[in-house]
Amino acid sequence: MNRLNIELPGLSMKNPVMPASGCFGFGQEYAKLYDLSRLGAIAIKATTVETRFGNPTPRVAETSSGMLNAIGLQNPGLEKVIANELVWLEKYDVPIIANVAGSKVEDYILVAEQISKAKNVHALELNISCPNVKEGGMAFGTNPEVASELTKLVKQVSDVPVYVKLSPNVTDIVEMAIACEEAGADGLSMINTLLGMRIDIKKRQPILANGFGGLSGPAVKPVAIRMIHQVSQAVSIPIIGMGGISTAEDVIEFFLAGASAVAVGTANFVDPFVCPNIIDDLPRVLDELKVDHISELIGGSWK
């Protein structure tokens, strides 16, 4: 019996574990280490209409049990992602979630429309939460009306279900989540990174060339758990949970908070085998908790 399979809109997953967008490129690097078909799904790096170089370096800075990044959505652009990266990924038996980003509404619509037609793209993740771009990104994800409007427009053009990726940099995450659900989102993914900064005490200036960046890793896990716990009780669409996951126990905690699947980001940098290791370890934890199927745990902390 498969104790880990999960069915979500557009996504028929062998297990609930996927690498998080931006922490796995388009899979090529990790494919040198293990078979990508073992993953529940793959969330690929954000795709924008044009090729983007991103921000100046340094783009990452370590923090206590976490890291800041200000990559700035570097990617090869829509055309190349469809022609090269997605075609390359076709050899794996794994659903792809395409992370869609832009600086204008039209950009999001163009990327969503075209990338959702790719054979192996089973869902979109609408990135309205990137803190690292001057225009767009998080600006779409901090105002419920703007997020709602964008979600509606993207839903109209997408051939596959749309998950909206929420920013934690808001006062009322529940309000944002409800706005997206009402606008027709098929699911939510949360959380993106938390805005943060570090200063080099010798140089007396920020470590990141961009000034601030997005905080991720174990340090943000309690914030993610709290937000998922709140949001999952307020909406009826499923949540892909993320933020600091690095062990099978962390996955269980996210399920209990209310997530129906999880994404692992920063932990891939620490241990490139973290996703398959977590997948292999989950049955042990289910045994310990005397649970037959992982789906029984969804929302278990409040149900």
Partner: peptide, 27 residues
């Protein structure tokens, strides 16, 4: 040298520009 995340090419932390690239998008 550059500050790194993954070290294996997946995170785009460690990029630099290519010389003589007027578009500044090559890396």
């Amino acid at each position: 040298e550059e500050r790194m995340g993954c070290g294996i090419g997946a995170c785009f932390a460690c990029v630099c520009n290519v010389k003589n690239d007027p578009t500044k998008t090559a890396y």
